[in-house]
């Protein structure tokens, strides 16, 4: 089988990536984490175009560029660009920015912005989030964190907890892990359960999953708990108080956990993971956030380097 290559490819949607390509990104992230390569992107200019603010995504992308020796141009919000000021189309803006740079990282509040940009730009586009649609680098850093903490991606048992309806990180990660024969446990309030179209996709792929009632019943079974925030504003206050407690993890609940269990969270957390979990060996969300830099370094390196890294 041909060795996968991401050289000069756009990274728009997790659905565009094969299992082999995901494995290559994870393996490259691990390499770059342990062996710094400060010259890899020397003489490369990367445009960082954030049409909406996103502190962690932007800073981790920019750190990734700088750690590989690349140079950055760009902006951190769309308000001051020619698009906002002069009514230029995104297609025109991105065509021009693409001609200045070797690759473009972009985040935009509208769904489909990165796909559109890729059609008008010669340089590869890396999607840093397009509205409520895709955020592939979050999924790749999640995958890397799972691999790093478990030593494999194949056949793991993963619990998804919290907002499984609106959380795009959950959707993309479930789609990605489905390619590695993982088994899912889903725990969410009725109003925030996994959308039917996604369950239909999992059914089609023959993925094993079950909806569960409490965290306690799955904690002894799973390798990964992926927590997300149940947003207050989706419920009235009394209802929120009633349901939220079921989706809060604390250290005491983890006494029955397997030794290898790790708790992940895309952050920011509010109160769904009690701070007493931070000190347990199960907490992995801050390492996960740090891994955002390595996963993004891996992507940039693979997209901009011909041949192996």
């Amino acid at each position: 089988m041909a060795i996968p290559s991401l050289y000069q490819k756009d990274i728009i949607s997790i659905a565009d990536l094969s299992r082999e390509e995901m494995e290559l990104i994870v393996a490259t992230a691990e390499k770059l984490k342990h062996t710094p390569r400060p010259d890899l992107l020397q003489n490369k200019v990367i445009a960082s175009c954030f049409f909406e603010a996103s502190t962690r995504t932007r800073l981790s992308f920019e750190t990734a560029v700088l750690r590989l020796g690349g140079t950055l141009i760009g902006f951190d919000n769309g308000g001051n660009t020619s698009l906002a000021k002069k009514g230029e189309t995104l297609a025109d803006s991105m065509q021009v920015i693409g001609s200045y740079s070797d690759a473009v990282v972009m985040r935009h509040p509208q769904e489909g912005a990165a796909r559109l940009a890729s059609e008008f730009t010669k340089s590869p586009i890396i999607n840093g989030g397009d509205g409520s649609n895709q955020h592939p680098t979050q999924t790749l850093l999640d995958l890397f964190s799972i691999y790093e903490s478990q030593g494999k991606l194949e056949g793991l048992k993963i619990a998804f907890v919290g907002d499984l309806k609106y959380g795009r990180t959950v959707h993309s990660l479930a789609q990605a892990c489905a390619r590695f024969n993982c088994e899912f446990y889903l725990l969410a309030p009725d109003a925030l359960s996994m959308p039917d179209y996604l369950l239909a996709e999992l059914d089609e792929q023959g993925v094993k999953y079950q909806c569960v009632e409490s965290m306690e019943e799955v904690i002894p079974l799973v390798d990964i708990i992926y927590m997300t925030r149940v947003q207050k504003e989706r419920f009235d206050e009394t209802e929120y108080k009633h349901i939220a407690s079921r989706y809060i993890l604390n250290a005491e609940m983890l006494t029955e956990a397997k030794d290898n269990l790790k708790v992940l969270h895309p952050l920011p957390r509010v109160d769904e993971i009690n701070v007493d979990v931070d000190k347990t060996p199960y907490a992995y969300y801050f390492q996960q956030a740090e891994n955002g830099v390595y996963a993004r370094m891996a992507l940039l390196a693979l997209v901009l380097t011909e041949g192996s890294i």
Binding site: T89, A91, Q110, E111, G112, L116, D130, G131, A200
Partner: peptide, 30 residues
């Protein structure tokens, strides 16, 4: 909120039969 509305492109859908329905998936907003 799909980007295809404000830009010089035509909407484009992938067509998929699902049970008795035909589903159209937007190329841009997915």
């Amino acid at each position: 909120n799909c980007i295809s509305h404000n830009e010089p492109v035509e909407a484009c859908f992938r067509v998929r039969k699902q049970d008795d329905d035909i589903r159209l998936k937007c190329k841009y907003c997915e």
